[in-house]
Every structure is written in structure tokens, then in C-alpha cells.
Design a protein around this nucleic acid. Structure first.
Lengths: 339, 339
DNA sequence: CTGAAAGCGCTTACAG
DNA sequence: CTGAAAGCGCTTACAG
């Protein structure tokens, strides 16, 4: 039923080897033979079997994409599709396919990664997150499998190819901006503390305070854990502090809007009573009221670079470890106000 | 370097066939042998080579996911990650992997689909969209490849397994709801006309008008084509009509917010001056001002069902064509008002 | 410039 | 209950 290289060979009256060489566009095959074989391939509707081809060349021309275990979380956020779009574009350019992890738990994902790499289903892997003490990254590091990470690895970052924003710097800029507007009491609503990105941004926030001679107040920090925490309660506690923050830095635009909605429930307006700033610059943020000031972290570009780093390693075993920093920039809109 | 079945066989002092049977958990192998072989597999860190295995069993245990060509469009919308999450969950349950199309143009995607199916990279395909005159669907229909579609096929829907909402019905409900609030001049901002979903929703809108004895006015219809159209101008024209619409149905929450932002630029408030309603019930819609009335189309469930339909066909060639209708429901929030 | 042969790492009738 | 052999559909030295 399916047309194989043998069928083509028979019809073209050549050997299977020759057909294979025509597919590979081997220069030692005569133009005449090539043409004849190509005609037969066309007329029979021949398409090479990837499994067979990959088995002998010991490659799969496929990149594995690993996302964090809390699938709900990963998918919800517009970050995922956008980074995937960048990866997809870069992979396509190099004729690589994309294979997605589907595991729901950390354990499942780990087993999946081991199976897909050792089982030769993928030639390399892109890890879409970086968190402290992650088994998957540990495994990849030790396995010798080409891989790259979106986000700074927590440990031994010098030995790993990764792409990231300068999160410390950009968080500092954001905080500096609010300080520049006259704010002295700035709260920080960040992601869970096991993500390196959360750590880095908190650090930048802290640096800005220190540089400005402002105290770091623990009560002004809210860690957002979307799976369990009581976001609304956390915001309420924040705003009921003896000295209420006049500005809030949040780690994502979606979170910012949630925060804004809670503030409004408390009869606090943005930006009149509280300035709010987000991260990731979602598509709608400019259309909303108030238009949200946010940080454009160039998600698409993070994806492109992550793919390129992985491909680099795959195509050249000796390729050096590289770190790529993608620019992030603050976009001022209407959600912040001079104090 | 890589551990093969032969290595395991040697160490366990059995034949490769036996090792293979242990992997397949063949009941004819003695418990003793099984245990011994498993121990060796464990200690050597053996993992089966998928390419080899798939080549002989002529299967890939993989589902191909095909998204529309305008990647930017497909990825931007939260629809994509959410439907993928559903597909992922269902695929994982059946131990299937996911392979993503990366083509940028319609032609590239078509070639990709042909190559991945004929090349046995995937056992079946899920088409994430349904548009008129689509070559990919045409090919899949004729190829005999197991596949399913998210969205009603435009032609020969009886011969294709697909999952969809009852878009005619839900659009009618939405329009009825506005009519019930006293609105008589209702505009419709839909997607491009080559998507079946746009057609169906427009039809439901029309039916509601007809049933209520209201005229269908062509000027009240704006087709949204995100790649080129001047959205703002379209909304402006709509609101400058001699008889201005008092309500607008939009085909997506993101579009609704864009529309709302243009309305506000024109000093029109929602819902005081104009009622607005969206589709897809994005995560943030409930947190925004005004909280957006929207239609929950159960995107996750669409994904689960689409995967199940494809898997059904893959696992049983004789499986009947099936159509699954996933419920959609209107969620009333604050963006609509009694006239 | 082309072909015969071996082999990639598995599975599975067939035999015993 | 287990093994030897053939074969899945390719690629690639080796020979000529």
C-alpha cells in the first residue's frame, strides 16, 4: 500500500541505493538518472518513511519542548503560545519538527524527557522554564543531550546554554521608574519563589530600593501562587497595612488586572490611588482602562533564540555554551501616576 | 554508547527476542526471566528506541496538530493554548505524543501534513480550524488518515469526525439575550468569512433577528480581519450610522475589549451607551471594567474531544464517524444593560 | 556514476 | 517458555 524506495527503484529501473542518493541529492548521480527517479517518485507519490530514515541516520530532526508540570498554569498564560511561535519559526527554518511533552506531574515529565531523549525521538530539548532544584534540568545537564533553557538556570549557569532577559536590571528599572514618580512605598507581587525569574525580579526591585535609600519591607512582598493562594486576601492585607503602598509591581499583566479589580472592589482607583505596573505586555493591555504600563520582554525572540541555541548544539557537538540576553523594555501607559 | 536490546540480552543471557517480549509484557515469558531481564534493563539504563520500534510496528503513537497558517493569529489567541491543553491531556492518557506543525504558509503546511502522514511520523491528525475550501482537510479526507477537526467542516460534514459548539444556537441565544434587554439595533463584529465558525455565528445572529421580527441590516455587520483591516475605522463607521447600534456582539473577548477601547475614545461608555458581548470567556474578562459578558465555549473540552475522536479512529479503523457537540453558555456580566 | 550488501534497533511468525 | 531468522524502510561504506 505505502510506496517504498524499492517500488521507486523497480519502476525507475535502478537500485534502491540510487533512489536513496537521489533523495539526498548526491552529486555523483547523473542528471538523467536523477530526473528519471524524480519522475517516478512523483508519479507514485513517494514520501520517505521518517522512522526508517531516522533509525539509520540516528537523528530525528525534532526538538522536544518541555513545559512546566502545572499544565493549567503554563497554558493559561499567553507566554506559552508566544514563545512557541518563536521556537516554531526557528525550528521550521532549520527543517526541524516539534515534539511536545504532555506529562501532567513532575514525575511524568521527567520520565517523558528521559524516554524521548534516550529513545531518540528528539535530537535536543528546550526547557521552557527554570526553577530551583529541577530534576529535568539536572538530567539534561548530565545526559549530554543538546538542550537550551528559557530562563537563567539557578545553578551552574555557566555550563548551560540559555536565553533570558536581564530580569534583575529590568525590575530595577521598573522600580526606579516608580521611585522617579515619587513613590516611596512600593509593593511587589511576584511569582512563586522557586522560579528563578521571580528571584531575579525581586532582586532588582530590592536593588532599586537600596540605591534610593528606601527600606525593604517584607510586608510589601506578596508571592503569587496561582494554584492555592488567596490572591484577593493578599492584596487586601497589603492595602490595609498601616502605611499603604502607593504603587504595586506585579509579575504579569493578568495578575495586574486581577489586582486592579480587587483594588476597585476596595474603592481604590488606578492610577489615582495606586499605581500598578505589569510584565509581559499582553496584546490587550494597551486597550484596557487604564491602559496598563508593562514590560515587553520580547517573548517571541526568547523562543527564537532558545531554538537556535538548541539547534546550534545539535548541529555542532563542539558548539560552545552560550548565553543570550534578550532586551526587555518598560512601556509607559496610563496605570502609573506621579505622586 | 546507547544501550540496545542486544546489550540487555547479552547481560541477561537470553535472546533479543526474549528481551523484546519482556518489554511487551508477553505472558508467555516466565516470571523469573522477566525479573532478570528487567533488572538488567534497569542497571544498564535501557530505553527502547522509538524509531526502530515504530518502524516495525508501523505506528508512531503520535498525533499531529495542525494549526492555521497565520501563525501569529493562531498563537495570539488564548484559544490555542487552551485547546492544546485538552488535547494534551487526552493524548497523554492514551500514551500518545504530540507533533506540531510549524509551517508558515498554507502551502508549507499542506506539504508538512502530507509528509508527516505519508512519512509515518504521526498516526493521525487533529485539524485545529475549519475553513472553506481548505486543501489540508480535502487531503486528509481522501488520504484515509485518521483525523478529527475542531470546528464544523464546511462540506461533507457527515463524513468527518469533528467537535464543535452549536455556534448557530449560541449566537442566537446571545442575540436573543440582547433583544430581551430591549435592544433593536444590534451590530455584529465577526471573524473572517472563510471560517465556518464565523458563518455559523452570523447565521444564529440573523435567525434571532428574524424570529424577533427585526430587520437584518448589512451595515451592522463588520468582518474582522486582524491581518489587514482597519478595526478602529470599522467601529467608527458603525457608530456614525444614522441609526447607531445600541449593542455589539463580537466574536472574541479580545476583540470586544478593542471595540470597547475605541468606543471610549469616541466618548461612548459601556454599557451605558452601548452593550457589548464577547466570545471565549478569557481568564481576565471577569476582572476587567466593565466585567465582560461572554460565551464560555469549553475550549478545553473541545480539545479533549478532538483528541478522543482522532484516537478512536487510530485505534479502531472501523470506528464510525462521530460528531461531538460541546456545550457553550452565555455568562452574563456587566457589559450589557437593559435599554 | 551505480549496485550489492550490511546494518540501524527493534518485533514477530515459526519452530521447538 | 525461548531462540534463530526474517524483515520494517531506509543509508552508506565498499567495489567496480
Amino acid at each position: 500500500m505505502t510506496v517504498t524506495i524499492k517500488d521507486v527503484a523497480k519502476h525507475a529501473q535502478v537500485s534502491p541505493s540510487t533512489v536513496s542518493r537521489v533523495i539526498a541529492d548526491n552529486p555523483r548521480i547523473s542528471p538523467k538518472t536523477k530526473e528519471k527517479v524524480k519522475e517516478v517518485m512523483e508519479s507514485l507519490g513517494y514520501h520517505p518513511n521518517f522512522q526508517a530514515r531516522n533509525l539509520v541516520i540516528q537523528k530525528s530532526q525534532t526538538l522536544g519542548i518541555i513545559m512546566e508540570n502545572s499544565a493549567a498554569l503554563a497554558f493559561q498564560n499567553p507566554f506559552f503560545p508566544e514563545v512557541l511561535r518563536g521556537i516554531s519559526a526557528a525550528a521550521h527554518k532549520s527543517q526541524f519538527g516539534l515534539y511536545l511533552s504532555t506529562g501532567a506531574t513532575e514525575e511524568e515529565i521527567f520520565e517523558e524527557v528521559v524516554a524521548m531523549t534516550l529513545g531518540k525521538r528528539v535530537d535536543g530539548v528546550i526547557l521552557l522554564y527554570s526553577k530551583i532544584g529541577d530534576r529535568v534540568m539536572e538530567y539534561l545537564k548530565n545526559s549530554g543531550v543538546p538542550f537550551s533553557v528559557v530562563g537563567r538556570p539557578y545553578a551552574q549557569a555557566e555550563t548551560i546554554s540559555y536565553v533570558d532577559n536581564d530580569n534583575v536590571q529590568i525590575a530595577k528599572e521598573v522600580t526606579d521608574y516608580l521611585i522617579g514618580l515619587g513613590h516611596r512605598h512600593i509593593a511587589f507581587v511576584g511569582g512563586t519563589a522557586d522560579y528563578v525569574v521571580s528571584l531575579d525580579r525581586l532582586k532588582g526591585y530590592q536593588q532599586a530600593l537600596t540605591d534610593a535609600g528606601l527600606p525593604f519591607i517584607q510586608e510589601y512582598i506578596a508571592e503569587r501562587n496561582p494554584m492555592q493562594s488567596d490572591e484577593e486576601g493578599a492584596i487586601r492585607r497589603l492595602m490595609e497595612l498601616p502605611i499603604r503602598p502607593t504603587a504595586i509591581v506585579t509579575h504579569d499583566d493578568l495578575v495586574a488586572y486581577e489586582v486592579i479589580s480587587y483594588l476597585e472592589d476596595m474603592k481604590l482607583s488606578v492610577p489615582e490611588d495606586v499605581s500598578v505596573i505589569g510584565f509581559n505586555n499582553h496584546a490587550i493591555s494597551e486597550h484596557l482602562k487604564p491602559p496598563l504600563s508593562s514590560v515587553d520582554i520580547s517573548i517571541y525572540e526568547l523562543g527564537v533564540q532558545a531554538a537556535n541555541l538548541a539547534l546550534e548544539k545539535i548541529l555542532d557537538e563542539t558548539a560552545a555554551v552560550r548565553k543570550v540576553t534578550v532586551p526587555a523594555r518598560l512601556i509607559e501607559r496610563g496605570s502609573c501616576q506621579q505622586l
